[in-house]
Design a protein around this nucleic acid. Sequence first.
DNA 1: CCGTATCCATTCCGATACTG
DNA 2: CAGTATCGGAATGGATACGG
Lengths: 149, 149
Amino acid sequence: MAKRNSLKEDACPVARSMEAIGDCWSMLIIRDAMLGKKRFGEFQKSLGVAKNILTMRLRALLDDGLLKLEPGADGSAYQEYVLTDKGRAVFPIMVALRQWAEDYAFKPGEETNIMVDRETGRRIRKLELHADDGRLLDLGDVTLKPATA
Amino acid sequence: MAKRNSLKEDACPVARSMEAIGDCWSMLIIRDAMLGKKRFGEFQKSLGVAKNILTMRLRALLDDGLLKLEPGADGSAYQEYVLTDKGRAVFPIMVALRQWAEDYAFKPGEETNIMVDRETGRRIRKLELHADDGRLLDLGDVTLKPATA
DNA sequence: CCGTATCCATTCCGATACTG
DNA sequence: CAGTATCGGAATGGATACGG
C-alpha cells in the first residue's frame, strides 16, 4: 500500500487491521513470536529475511504496540522481543489464516503442520462465531451497523 | 513481498494465507464482496483505488479461485464478481481481523462500524476456538505438529 | 460502464559490508 | 549476536488517457 495513512483512519476495522498486520513479514514475525521465538537472530533465521528488513518490521511492530522489548531473561546481554497483550490478541487471526490455508491452499500429500491441542495432541475444531444467544453464525447471518468506538 | 514463490511453497499455512490474501486490497475487495458488492464500479467506488490496480487484484483473486465471474443477474450486460466457496471461507479471517481492530485500533469516540446479528441486530460474540472435546482454547493451549495434507 | 495501456513515483526488498 | 548503512533492482501503486 502506498497511501498508508488513508487506511489508518479508515472507519472499517478490517482496513485498520490490514494496515497494522497485513504486511506479510509482520504476520510471520508474530507467528514466530507466538511459537516462542524472542531474539533477533531467531526471527532472522526462521524467516530468512534480510536483516535490515527485519529491523524495520520489528520496529514497526514495537511502534504499533504488538511487541515490546524486555531484558534477556536467561542472563543474555541482549534484549528480547515479546508479545504484548495487543500482540497476543492476534491469535484468532492467525488461527483463522491457518485454518483457511489448511483447507484451501495445500494439495493432498504436501508437507505442512497442523495446530493441535497441547494437552491431547489432537486436532482442534474450526473457529466458531456465535450470536449472543449462542446461535452459530455464518456469513449470511451478520450485517454491519454504524457505531462509535 | 518480492519472493512470492518462496511463500507459496512454504510449509506453514499462515504463510500461504498471507500470500493469497495478505495483500491489503485483496482483503478489502473480499470484504466488499461479502457485503454484497459485485461490480467493478462498486469496488472501485468503495475502495477509491486506481482502476488498473483494481483490475490486477480482481484478476489475482479470480486466478486464486476466491472470486468467479458470473453473467449479470439483473439483465446487465456486464459480468459480476462473486465469491466462490473458497472466497466465502475467508469469513472467519475477516471476522478475526475486525474483532481485533475493534479492540485495539480505535480510540474512544471514533466512528466505525460493528458486526451484528442480522436477526436481532445485537452484537456478536468473539470468535471461539475449541478443542475437540469442547474446551475453550487460547494461545498457550495449542502447539504445532508436522503433518501431511 | 468496464476495463486496458502507458507513464512515473514510491516503496520495498535482498545482498552486502560494516560497527559495537 | 544484534543491529546499521548503503545500493540497486523489482514490484507496486496512482493518475490519466484511451477503447469496447
